[in-house]
């Protein structure tokens, strides 16, 4: 098992803020919009340095999405920001008609996705957004794993022409992605090679997958661990190449099992190379109040869960 180290834990939303700060200096077409959550989205630097390119929309997310779509006409690149719940389910029809169907170059960048939003509870813990967004034709869906990768993804999507849903979160997590790593949309990253089981993880669960890999290695099992930061377009080749070697797979994500990364991987495998598969995800349930750690533990989004499911799928291939 390859060793991954980190010097500090940082939140992915701050990676977004750092990416926006850089874009503010390097790309004069980038415009930021926010629905009354600038501190949560870490937009302070961008706003301070580019006050004329920040549009405060107030608590009116539907209008924000429409305004963003309209801004694209003059060649501007709007980054519409809010919490993931309010940037997906609350404005799904606006995203569908004004952004996706209209093919507008809007970047919907959302924080506080999933259970790790924590104490605010299930009203704010969106666990269905990946499913909703990946269902939209033409929509790119990205869920980076740490500060550096979120920063790099933020910069990368500005150069990509088309609608993007960029999802990140609130808690601090190990920041292990190299700071100079270029973000390639749709290109999975193999973090560890191994012959025994493929682990496909996204977002905060990528670090848990690496932890699971260490635990499996203690039992003599070498897992192939792949960071699927882009859920759509999915890197099907990377998935098939890995499972053809390992013969079984586990997916891990901070999302509902229905509609998530696991669904996407299951589709690829069942259509191309059926193999034992299990999923670490929230199983048809809403979240609740609690600390991020308590919630991840209670809902089984942990390295231990990944290990248990990996051992089970390895058994199934025999």
């Amino acid at each position: 098992m390859k060793t991954y180290t980190f010097t500090e834990k940082k939140d992915t939303r701050s990676g977004f803020g750092a990416g926006m700060a850089e874009l503010g200096r390097t790309n004069s077409d980038v415009v930021a919009l926010c629905a009354d959550l600038v501190a949560s989205l870490k937009l302070d630097t961008f706003i301070k340095e580019n006050p004329d390119r920040f549009i405060q929309c107030g608590i009116a997310e539907a209008n924000m999405i429409g305004v963003a779509a309209g801004l694209t006409l003059s060649g501007l690149i709007p980054f519409a920001t809010t919490f993931a719940n309010f940037g997906s389910s609350r404005v799904y029809d606006q995203i569908r008609q004004a952004v996706a169907y209209s093919g507008k170059n809007v970047k919907i960048c959302v924080s506080h996705a999933g259970l790790t939003l924590g104490e605010d509870g299930a009203t704010h813990q969106i666990l269905e957004d990946i499913g909703m967004m990946k269902s939209l034709p033409g929509m790119t869906v990205i869920n980076p794993c740490d500060f550096n990768q979120t920063r790099a993804a933020t910069i990368a999507i500005a150069d990509y022409e088309g609608p993007v849903y960029l999802r990140f979160g609130r808690p601090v997590v190990p920041n292990f992605t190299p700071a100079d790593q270029i973000f390639e949309i749709g290109k999975a990253i193999v973090l560890n090679e191994g012959p025994d089981v493929s682990i496909f993880a996204t977002g905060h669960l990528v670090w848990q997958a690496l932890e699971a890999g260490k635990l499996l290695a203690e039992q003599g099992i070498e897992a192939e661990i792949i960071n699927i930061h882009t859920i759509k377009p999915l890197d099907k080749e990377a998935i098939l190449q890995s499972v053809r070697k390992t013969g079984c797979a586990v997916t891990a994500e901070e999302h509902q099992m229905n509609g998530g990364l696991g669904d996407s991987v299951a589709q690829v495998l069942s259509l191309n190379y059926p193999a034992p598969l299990d999923m670490v995800a929230v199983n048809d349930s809403f979240g609740e109040s609690g600390t991020p750690e308590q919630l991840m533990e209670k809902y089984g989004l942990t390295a231990a869960s990944i290990v248990a499911k990996a051992l089970a799928v390895i058994q199934r291939k025999k």
Binding site: N63, V67, A69, G70, T72, L73, Q97, A98
Partner: peptide, 19 residues
């Protein structure tokens, strides 16, 4: 821009005007 699902055009126009 596409329209049909009602209530969205004024926001798009606002974005265009802002642009």
């Amino acid at each position: 821009i596409a329209s049909g699902s009602l209530g969205q055009g004024l926001s798009a126009a606002a974005g265009a005007a802002y642009g």
